[in-house]
Simulated scan of single mutants.
Amino acid sequence: MLQNGKCSTCRKLRSDGLALLPDDFELPEAVNTDSGEFGVNSRYVVARQSHLLRSDEIIVVSRESESVVERHKIGMLAKITGGRL
């Protein structure tokens, strides 16, 4: 369920979120595991990739297929206002 435009997994993003995944799960190369915040639920891994000078990005990866299923840019104005634009 969405609350303030965010799903429960997105509301729980954290820098150590990848620790919740099994050891044999591999994220696609499109997801940088060195930086960003991650959330995990039973079906998806949600990553917020942070960039200093360009738009942040939300990447959703299927746990079943280990592939990217959604990808959205968060513009500079949305970054300033907390992602709500």
Rank of each mutant, 00 (worst) to 15 (best):
N4D: 13
E64P: 00
E70F: 08
P22I: 07
L85E: 13
L2R: 14
G36L: 11
R84C: 10
E26W: 02
N4K: 08
F38A: 10
S15H: 14
S50L: 12
V61L: 02
G17C: 09
A78R: 05
L77H: 07
L53T: 13
L77M: 12
E37D: 11
G36S: 08
S62W: 04
Q3F: 06
D56I: 07
E37S: 12
G39F: 13
E26L: 11
D34N: 15
S50G: 00
I59Q: 03
D23P: 12
D16F: 04
L20A: 15
L77I: 14
E64W: 01
E26I: 01
V68F: 05
H51K: 15
P22G: 01
G36W: 13
I74N: 08
S67R: 08
L2F: 10
I80E: 12
K79Y: 01
V31Q: 01
R71T: 06
E70K: 12
Q49A: 13
K6W: 11
S62R: 07
G5Y: 09
D24K: 10
L18H: 10
N32I: 06
S8K: 04
I74S: 07
L85H: 14
S62Y: 02
L2Y: 15
N4W: 01
G17N: 09
Q3A: 03
S55C: 10
G39T: 06
T81R: 14
R48A: 03
S50C: 02
S65N: 04
N32Q: 10
S35C: 07
V46W: 03
D16C: 09
R48K: 13
V60C: 00
D56R: 13
D24S: 10
T33D: 07
K79W: 01
Y44C: 01
E66T: 01
F38P: 00
M76I: 07
Q49W: 11
P22L: 01
L27V: 04
V60I: 09
M76Y: 02
L20V: 07
T9N: 11
E26S: 09
T33S: 15
S42N: 14
